[in-house]
Amino acid sequence: MKYMLLIHGASDACTPQEWGDYDKSLRDAGVHVDGNPLGEPSLSTAVHISADGEKVVTDGPYAEAREVLGGYYIIDVPDLDAATDWAARCPGARHGGSMVVRPIIEYT
């Protein structure tokens, strides 16, 4: 069962060492599927198709600092309890940051 762990408002207090250790622990446990940090909000670009069918590209959006999606992991674990245990170990859950765990829906 795959879950995406969304890392919101991760604090600068988390060191590269902490992120590296966490990443390694996911791989060592064999639950790591994917995971990446995302560029800061000022680097994000919004796209939608307007009512008259035109592609519209705009700067943004900018979320509140604590809500910024800073990165994600995809893990493969047996159930939600295992997923929340891994989320709790992530540096992004500390120093005022928070994690959101969402199941990945697979169509077979």
Partner: peptide, 8 residues
Amino acid sequence: SVARIPFR
């Protein structure tokens, strides 16, 4: 069922 909250 979907988020798989375990029966344990």
